[in-house]
Computed example of a mutant assay.
Amino acid sequence: MATNADPADLANWLDYMFMPPDAFDWPLNVMVARSGDQTILIDAGLGGQFAGFPRAGQFPQRLEAAGIALESVTDIIITHMHMDHVGGLLVPGVKERLSPDVRIHVSATEVEFWTSPDFSHTVMPKPVPAVLRSTATSFYNEYRGQLRIFQDRHEVAPGVIVRLTGGHTPGHSVVDLVSGDERLTFAGDAVFPVGFDHPEWHNGFEHDPVESARVRIALFQELAQNRGLLVAAHLPFPSVGRVAVDGEAFRWVPVIWDY
Rank of each mutant, 00 (worst) to 15 (best):
residue 176 D to M: 11
residue 207 H to F: 05
residue 210 V to G: 08
residue 251 R to N: 03
residue 125 P to A: 02
residue 220 F to C: 13
residue 203 N to R: 15
residue 153 R to N: 09
residue 117 P to E: 04
residue 162 V to G: 07
residue 153 R to L: 04
residue 6 D to F: 11
residue 199 P to T: 05
residue 29 N to L: 00
residue 72 S to C: 09
residue 37 D to L: 03
residue 18 F to Q: 15
residue 85 H to A: 13
residue 67 G to F: 01
residue 215 V to N: 04
residue 38 Q to T: 10
residue 204 G to C: 03
residue 187 A to S: 08
residue 210 V to D: 12
residue 183 R to G: 13
residue 229 L to A: 15
residue 169 T to A: 00
residue 202 H to V: 14
residue 234 H to W: 08
residue 149 I to W: 01
residue 116 S to N: 15
residue 117 P to L: 05
residue 226 N to S: 05
residue 209 P to K: 07
residue 95 K to P: 14
residue 196 F to H: 01
residue 231 V to W: 03
residue 73 V to C: 03
residue 65 A to D: 06
residue 151 Q to S: 12
residue 1 M to L: 06
residue 232 A to S: 09
residue 147 L to D: 00
residue 196 F to V: 00
residue 66 A to R: 12
residue 220 F to A: 10
residue 184 L to M: 13
residue 96 E to D: 12
residue 140 Y to A: 04
residue 34 R to G: 12
residue 183 R to D: 14
residue 139 F to R: 03
residue 114 W to V: 00
residue 95 K to W: 09
residue 20 P to T: 10
residue 74 T to R: 11
residue 187 A to E: 06
residue 148 R to I: 15
residue 118 D to K: 11
residue 180 G to D: 07
residue 132 L to Y: 15
residue 126 K to S: 05
residue 124 M to G: 12
residue 129 P to E: 07
residue 90 L to W: 00
residue 162 V to E: 07
residue 157 A to Q: 07
residue 238 P to N: 02
residue 38 Q to V: 09
residue 11 A to R: 03
residue 212 S to V: 06
residue 74 T to I: 06
residue 225 Q to H: 07
residue 144 R to M: 04
residue 58 Q to T: 14
residue 181 D to Q: 15
residue 119 F to A: 02
residue 38 Q to A: 11
residue 72 S to R: 13
residue 247 G to D: 06
residue 247 G to A: 08
residue 65 A to T: 07
residue 113 F to K: 08
